[in-house]
Nucleic acid binder design. Sequence first.
DNA 1: AGTCTTGTTTTTGTATCCAATGGGGCTCGG
DNA 2: CCGAGCCCCATTGGATACAAAAACAAGACT
Lengths: 212, 212
Amino acid sequence: MADRVYEAIRREILDGRLAAGEKITEAVLAERFDASRTPVRSAIVRLAGDGFVEMTPRSGTVVKRRTPAEVSEIYEVRALLESAAAGLAAGRCDERDLDELKAIQSEMEAATTGPWQAEEEVVERISALNQAFHQKILEASRNATLADSAARLMNIGFLINTYARFSHPEIERSLFEHRQLIAALTSRDPAWAEAVMRAHILGARNSLAAAS
Amino acid sequence: MADRVYEAIRREILDGRLAAGEKITEAVLAERFDASRTPVRSAIVRLAGDGFVEMTPRSGTVVKRRTPAEVSEIYEVRALLESAAAGLAAGRCDERDLDELKAIQSEMEAATTGPWQAEEEVVERISALNQAFHQKILEASRNATLADSAARLMNIGFLINTYARFSHPEIERSLFEHRQLIAALTSRDPAWAEAVMRAHILGARNSLAAAS
DNA sequence: AGTCTTGTTTTTGTATCCAATGGGGCTCGG
DNA sequence: CCGAGCCCCATTGGATACAAAAACAAGACT
C-alpha cells in the first residue's frame, strides 16, 4: 500500500497542507498514515521523480519550491504541448470524446451558477473538473507520450496556488475558452483548436503571473 | 548508494544488456551490484518513474517494451519540444554556448573521419556526443522545464536501438544537420533553428521507422 | 561578544526478516 | 494427448533493526 501513501502525500501537497519548502520527515508521515517507513520512502522517491519534492542525499526532503519564473516556464511548456494535443484531438476525436467534454463543461457551468455556498468547495470542484477537461483533450489526441508529458506538467501546475487561480473572472474566462475549444474540436479545425488552447493556457499563465 | 545502482541498471538498459521485455528480479540485481534489495528497489521505482521499466504490483518488473508507434510518438514530441528549445536558444545563447556546440561538433567529425577501428566503440562515442549536442541546445534555451521534459524523452529515445540508428549515412546526415543548427544559432535566427531541429528529429524518426 | 569546535540527537540510508500473493509445475481427469 | 485444477515455491511488499551522517546545541576560546 505504498500507492495509498503516495496518493495521500500527493493530495496533502496539492491541497497545500504540506506547504512549499516544508521539510518532510519519513517517520512523521509513516506514523500519520499508519505505515512503516518503507512505503513512505518509496512514495517519496516517486514524488521526487514527479517533481513534487526534492530529496537531498543524507539531508532530507522538502516540498519543492517554485519561483514565479519557473511557474511561467511550466505554463509555457504546457501551452506548447497541450496546444499540439488540441490540434491532434481536432483531427482525431470521436463523438464520444466530444460528448464527455460537453458533459464536463456542463458540470462546470452548473457548479458556477449554482448556489455559492462554501466558496472553497466550489473552487475545488471547478479545479477538478478543469483538470478532467484538459486530461480528456490530451486523451483525445491519441498520443500517449504527448499526453503523459503534458499531464506531468499539469499536475505540477495544479499544485501552484490552486485557489488564487480561480477567482470569479478567471472562471468565467475559463468557461468561455472551454466552450470555444469544444467548438473548434466539433468543427474538426486543428489550427483553431491549437490557437484557442494556446491562448487559454498562456492567459492562465498571465493571470497567475499578475497575482504573484 | 542507491544512486550507483540506479545508474548501473540504467546503463545496462541503455546498452541493451537488459533487453526490452526482460524480467527484472530484485534479488539478482542486488547480488550483481553487491547491495541489498533496498537500494535496488529504490532504483527500480525511479526507473519506473522515468519510463524505463514497468512495475506490475505483486507480480514483478520488466524492462518496458515500446511498439514502433510509441517510438514514433516519442520522436514527434521530441521534435515539438526540442524545436521550441532550438528557437529559444537562437535568441538566448551566448558565445560560450556556441563554442561548446562547435567543440562537440568537431569531436563528432573527428570521431567519424578518424580510423574506423572498433565500429561499435565509434558508434557509442557518436551517440554520446550526439546526446551532449542536443543537451547543450536544451540548456541554451534557458528554460529548465522545457529542457527537463525534452531530456526525459531523449533518454527514453536513446534506449531504442542505439546502434541501428547510426549507420554511416545517418551519421553523415546528422553531422550535416548539426552544422546547419550551429549556423542558425550563430545567426540568431529562431525560425531557422526551429525548422532545422524539427527536420533533424523527424528525419531521425523516419529512418528509425524505416529500420523497424 | 562572536565564532569555532565538539558532543549529542535526530534522521536518513541500508540490511535483514517476515508475511502474502502470483506463477510455474505437477498431477489428475477427460 | 491435451486441458483444468491444485499445490509449492520463488518473489514481491512491508516492518524492523542498525549504522552513519548531518543538524542542532552547548561550551570554550579568541
